[in-house]
Design a protein around this nucleic acid. Sequence first.
RNA 1: CGGGCAGGUCAGACGAUCGCUGGCGUGGCGUUGGCUUCGGCCGGGGUCAUGCUGGAGGAAAGUCCGGACUCCGCAGGGAAACGCGCCUGGUAACGCCAGGGGGCUUGUAGCACAGGCUAAUAGCCUGUGCCACGAGCUACGGAUAGUGCCACAGAAAAUAAACCGCCGGUGCGUUCCGCCUCUGUGACAGGCCCGAGGAAAACCUCGGGCACGUCCAACAAGGGCAGGCAAACUGGUAAGGGUGAAAUGGUGGGGUAAGAGCCCACCGCUCCGCUGGCAACAGCGGAGGCACGGCAAACCCCGCGUGGAGCAAGGCCAAAUAGGAGGGGAGGGCUGUCCCGGCCCGAUGUGGCGCAAGCCAUAGCCCGCACCGAGCAAUCCCCUAACGGGGAUAAAUCGGCGCGGACAUCAACCCUCGGGUAGGCCGCUUGAGUCCGGUUGCGAAACCGGACCCAGAGGAAUGAUCGUCCCACGGCGUAGGCCGAAUUUUGGACACGCCGCGACAGAAUCCGGCUUAUCGGCUUGCCCGCCAA
RNA 2: GGCGCUAUGGUGCAACGGUUAGCACAUCACCCUUUCAAGGUGGAAAUGCGGGUUCGAUUCCCGCUAGCGCUA
Length: 128
Amino acid sequence: MHDAAKPAASASRSNRSYPRACRLLARANFEAVYDGGRRRASKQFLVFFRRRTALDAVSRFGISVKKALGGAVVRNRLKRRIREILRVHRQEIGTGWDIVIHPRSSVATAPFAALERELLDLLASALK
RNA sequence: CGGGCAGGUCAGACGAUCGCUGGCGUGGCGUUGGCUUCGGCCGGGGUCAUGCUGGAGGAAAGUCCGGACUCCGCAGGGAAACGCGCCUGGUAACGCCAGGGGGCUUGUAGCACAGGCUAAUAGCCUGUGCCACGAGCUACGGAUAGUGCCACAGAAAAUAAACCGCCGGUGCGUUCCGCCUCUGUGACAGGCCCGAGGAAAACCUCGGGCACGUCCAACAAGGGCAGGCAAACUGGUAAGGGUGAAAUGGUGGGGUAAGAGCCCACCGCUCCGCUGGCAACAGCGGAGGCACGGCAAACCCCGCGUGGAGCAAGGCCAAAUAGGAGGGGAGGGCUGUCCCGGCCCGAUGUGGCGCAAGCCAUAGCCCGCACCGAGCAAUCCCCUAACGGGGAUAAAUCGGCGCGGACAUCAACCCUCGGGUAGGCCGCUUGAGUCCGGUUGCGAAACCGGACCCAGAGGAAUGAUCGUCCCACGGCGUAGGCCGAAUUUUGGACACGCCGCGACAGAAUCCGGCUUAUCGGCUUGCCCGCCAA
RNA sequence: GGCGCUAUGGUGCAACGGUUAGCACAUCACCCUUUCAAGGUGGAAAUGCGGGUUCGAUUCCCGCUAGCGCUA
């Protein structure tokens, strides 16, 4: 296996990217997290998480916004703001997890800095 | 300058930092296919870095219509079902668009009639009808093909008749009513007489009487008459009948016993003809007194159209696992290869357990018969006195061959093939394309020429954070000039600063429309108001 | 992505195009009871929104809004 070399290379390149490798891309991955993982909630978020088989692999994230939270514009904005948090702070979150984030309705209007702090605290306490 | 209507167009700008994603190029890493002279060469796709370049809309929305495209189905005709429906044109097509026609509503002006006001044939107001012009709306085939419905109210709601009313006749006559006259009863407002009171004859009030008089109130009988007529019956009418959304053409005049298109004028309607128009339709003329209420977004009739499903269509590649088809196959596989041994799977026999499917243990890898060979004695025969030797033969067992049975159609396993899931690739964005110019057309649009390439994602990109500016609005504050009321004071727009807010909304195969949502900016045309020249 | 259905008082349901939109439960007031419950009497309360057809619309037609379901 050559996994050991690749994260080191990408980490040296940049620490604020959000490439395809760290996203959940298939329905089966989401189902695995829902079925086999634990969950933790806060005021603004609901988080599902599950260990990957390789502990030193890159953590992968998925975002799911239900239709009741608004139209397509509102839902897209929710996902973009969460992606931005993950993109900037991805290195501070531990490796080897699959994480699915469900935002609640107040995420669309809350200030960005508060959201950032709350999500990071939630993930830090959950993945301990 | 401001406002309104209609159309077109734009969809905050700039910058910094960090990202996502398509294309083209370069490089690194690992992977895979083909060819090979085994040195390599040519590709495919993945990932990472880097350079250049592109990255939401006018509605991307709703999914209401119409197409392109794809697959499936399909001899022809009809029916059913669904949709559409004035005419002409545009278009790939449409339920869309353009132009035209008809209808409805509304405004203005005119004419006719009715009613009211005023001294007034003049004028004003209201209502009805007709016509002209302007604006808006219009799912706008057929109601003499049929069926159905039209509540309440009203005489009546669809064949036009019944009812009330109106009118003629019978009733009808010396007999009912009315009127005239005479007589009588009766009455007494008028008249006369008497009495009482007011001082008082005349005057006034009250009471009583008379019938000369009068029939103004009433009754009876006789005579007469320009008269009238109930109930009921019969006939003529459709003018009128508070209603209603709608009442069997409308208005005016003539006419009549009363009336009526019964007759006439104008308007409307139907039919015919002519003219104009491609047509819808319009105009004119003639004929007909008029026979035809509304609803088809009620059933329906007529005409036209429609095969079904949809890019998650459809096509290609294809892991693991479990099925399928064909062939081989009672043994097979693994332990690198050979032998031995061992293990696993399979089927078979036996035993045990279990209702059963099946599970566990164990045995050996098909069985029977005949023949041949090996095996060959302690059996038989021969030699030997004996030990011993020689020969023959049976059975178990092993091997070979033949025949028969089992198997061959079940099965581990092997080979080949096919469908196909996850997943991947194509479809996928060059198209009824966009912009500019010209020509034709009232226009929708069409044609010609030139230029250009303008998102292709797929748990789903096209952004996040911050700063500066801009526009409109709201709030607060400041002090400056202006306007209005005016005693300090207060209101309005302008100016400056700060804060807040920044429309509707996100491509999902692609187009043409429709509908819906939407803060505003710019611009074109028309109309209205103000100011200036 | 495609297709279909529904919307009526607070709730669950009715209503041929034609009264003042009906029924049950709930709710409010009064009566009954020592009180509560039950019972009785009376009241309030609704056609999702906007247009159109019609004399007249909950009903018919069109467009929105919301909810629900089916399919792959």
